[in-house]
């Protein structure tokens, strides 16, 4: 994988023996998402997208991924809805939609 998957089976330590030694823990270990931060959702219009990858490059969270068909996908688990991708897209291929209430 090019980005970590959430560890859904993670159980927080209960006993002392469950804790890591020192302050060392596996890198790229994610247990929760950032989706709830978002009020606006970027949506890519595949027709308009020229695949220039500028959105992929400039996303501070790295949540835009190239898929195997050469298209782009957004990981909505970790997108915070900042809107940089939409603003920087030269083709205006990414619109920001309200997440609603």
């Amino acid at each position: 994988m090019n980005f970590p998957e959430r560890n859904r089976s993670f159980k927080p330590p209960k006993e002392l023996k469950d804790y890591p030694v020192g302050t060392a823990f596996p890198a790229g270990h994610l247990v929760d998402t950032n989706a709830a931060w978002r009020s606006l959702r970027p949506v890519i219009d595949a027709i308009k997208c020229s695949n220039c990858l500028i959105c992929w490059l400039l996303c501070p969270d790295g949540v835009i991924h190239r898929n195997s068909e050469g298209g782009l996908e957004i990981d909505y688990d970790f997108c915070k809805g900042c809107g940089i991708c939409s603003k920087e897209c030269r083709q205006k291929a990414i619109r920001m939609e309200s997440e609603g209430e």
Partner: peptide, 21 residues
């Protein structure tokens, strides 16, 4: 070139504010 860059994301799922430079 952008296309030469790695697909691997090594800073992911962080709690920085939206739009953090």
């Amino acid at each position: 070139s952008i296309r030469d860059l790695s697909d691997r994301e090594l800073f992911y799922g962080h709690k920085a504010c939206p739009g953090c430079g």
